[in-house]
Structure formats: C-alpha cells, structure tokens
C-alpha cells in the first residue's frame, strides 16, 4: 500500500467517524428541551456543530475519494521504521493499569511498580538489569506519590 493510499484511506475512515459523531450529536439534541429562556436553547449548538461536522466529513471524503481515483502521489513519506506495536503495548499497559486501580482495586504501590516495569521493558531494552532498575524506580515513585497524596493531601488512590 502506498503512502498516498494509506493517507486517503485514513481520511475516509476519519470522515466516517466524524459523520458518526455528528449523528450522535443530532440524536442527543433531539431529546433536549425546547428553548425556554432565550431563542437558542440547549439544542442549537449541538445541531450547528453536527451540521458543520457533516460538512467537513463530506469535504474530506470527497477529496480522499478523488485522490484515490486520480492516483495522487503523496508529497513525502516520513515513515522511519516506526514500530506501532510498541505504542499499542504501552496503551494496553496503561489501560490495564487504570483498570487494575479502578475496578480491581489493586493497591497503588503494587500496580504502579508493575506498570513502570512493563512500560519500561516494552519500550527499552529487555534485560535483567533494566528489570531491576525499573522495579526500583516504580517502587520509589509510587511510595513517594502515595505518601505525599495520602499524608499531606488526604487523597487515597483507589
């Protein structure tokens, strides 16, 4: 797949998502009470923004479609051996971390130490030395944060 096709397809997907968002705005606006204190009311801005989003989505889709049709060549490809899997690994780790704190009520210090190790190792080099360094870092960081928050600010995480 060329850079041009990739970007055009990304634009098409974006325009679909934006159009979907606009539909949600319209659905939400339909339930809102009619204007009561001034002529605009709650529903005016959602409808205006929904209409604008539909317009922009249409322009984007049209342009992307034309580009695909004409076989447009992207000006420059700037992909430099990026590894999206690492990004996804960090995102997954972040989601699991918040999930652990929020839903599973895992203690903050334990969850944070594990999280720092996982993120550190998924981005950096995987070796035993790093494992120890990140575990130490995570432990010190989480102890420091939870001490400050709970002792001085009375905020308990979890």
């Amino acid at each position: 797949m060329t850079e041009a096709t990739r970007r055009s397809i990304a634009d098409l997907v974006l325009s679909l998502l934006v159009a979907g968002g606009a539909v949600i705005l319209f659905i939400g606006a339909a339930d809102l009470p009619p204007p009561r204190f001034e002529p605009l009311g709650s529903a005016a801005l959602p409808r205006i923004l929904g209409a604008l989003l539909l317009l922009f989505a249409a322009i984007l889709a049209l342009r992307a479609g034309l580009r695909l049709h004409r076989g447009w060549v992207a000006p420059k490809a700037e992909v430099n051996g990026a590894d999206p899997r690492k990004g996804f690994a960090v995102l997954l780790a972040l989601i699991l971390y918040v999930l652990a704190l929020d839903v599973l009520r895992v203690p903050f210090v334990a969850a944070t130490t594990v999280f720092v190790v996982v993120v550190g190792l998924s981005i950096g080099a995987r070796n035993w030395r790093n494992l120890l360094v990140f575990a130490g870092l995570g432990l010190v960081l989480s102890l420091a944060i939870s001490t400050i928050l709970s002792r001085f600010l009375f905020i308990t995480i979890g």
Binding site: V116, V119, G120, N130, L137, L141
Partner: peptide
C-alpha cells in the same frame, strides 16, 4: 532513559 521517563510521566498523568 526514555523508557523510564515515559513510564514516570504516565504515572504522573494518571495520578
């Protein structure tokens, strides 16, 4: 080290 820094910033973001 970038990996450690990112992990620390992520923890700060969450807290």
């Amino acid at each position: 080290p970038r990996s450690g820094l990112m992990a620390v910033i992520l923890v700060f973001c969450v807290t």
